[in-house]
């Protein structure tokens, strides 16, 4: 039997919002340590890796590991039926072919349950090695979303250059070129407004802007986004999910031909 109860259904709604652009379906791998998801987008250029720890749930029970193949479009429709302040419970019998979502209003006066068919997805998992990144940038998630959106008007690629002074985002195309430089902030009082750069060595990499924009759908999950870069390895864009977990997007850098 698998049962996971979350007081804030808004977390699950935001997680779906964050992945449904990139993925049509994904497998939720549930074990006693929590729920994990790893899937590449259809073009196999980017990857989503999500982890929700069991201790972040109000109630979590997973008698036997269970992998639930979810159609994310259907799951989004079901989660739209939950109010933000509803309590959501996901549950499934062992080797079940359906999963049930239960939404309870705060005053328990309204309880809804939605049963969804599961899919058999034989998605392969990629091994992602532990990596020491040359540059790790932390900046306000809203700022990053704004930069990706603004620069995607200029070209289909964004060049991210990181030095110890700060990070520069550039794009060029038919209408012209654009550069946005963020200096490393000095003593800001609010952590979530800071721009920090941990640099082992300077890095300059080029990425497809449409994927970066898809990643920023996770902005509502966290005030801060973390970009990890090294020469010739995929970028990692990470958003924390409250105290319960994280969502990480991986994107292969473009190479000059």
């Amino acid at each position: 039997m698998f049962e996971a109860r979350l007081v804030q259904s808004s977390i699950l709604k935001k997680v779906l919002e964050a992945i449904k652009d990139l993925l049509n379906e994904a497998t939720f791998d549930c074990s006693d340590s929590g729920i994990q998801l790893q899937a590449m987008d259809n073009s196999h250029v980017s990857l989503v890796s999500m982890n929700l720890r069991s201790d972040g749930f109000d109630k979590y029970r997973c008698d036997r590991n269970i992998s639930m193949g979810m159609n994310l479009g259907s799951m989004t429709k079901i989660l739209k039926c939950a109010a933000n302040e509803d309590v959501v419970t996901m549950k499934a019998q062992d080797n079940a072919d359906t999963v049930t979502f239960v939404f309870e209003s705060p005053n328990q006066e309204k309880v809804s349950d939605y049963e969804m068919k599961l899919m058999n997805l034989d998605q392969e998992h990629l091994g992602i090695p532990e990596t020491e990144y040359a540059c790790v940038v932390r900046l306000p998630a809203g700022e990053f979303a704004r930069i990706c959106r603004d620069l995607s008007q200029f070209g289909e690629s964004v060049v991210i250059s990181c030095t110890k002074e700060g990070v520069k985002f550039s794009s060029a195309g038919d209408i012209g070129s654009a550069n946005i430089k963020l200096a490393q902030t000095s003593n800001v009082d609010k952590e979530e407004l800071a721009v920090t750069v941990e640099m082992q060595e300077p890095v300059t990499l080029t990425f497809a802007s449409r994927y970066l924009n898809s990643f920023t759908k996770a902005t509502s999950l966290s005030n801060v986004v973390q970009l990890s870069m090294s020469p010739d390895v995929p970028l990692v864009v990470e958003y924390r999910i409250g105290e319960i977990g994280h969502i990480r997007y991986y994107l292969a850098p473009k190479i000059e031909d």
């Binding site: 250029v45 990629l126 091994g127 090695p129 292969a252 190479i255 031909d257």
Partner: peptide
């Protein structure tokens, strides 16, 4: 212009 590699060029399926 530049080429867009796949993730499998960097990470191995397991």
């Amino acid at each position: 212009n530049n080429l867009q590699p796949f993730l499998k060029d960097f990470y191995v399926p397991h």
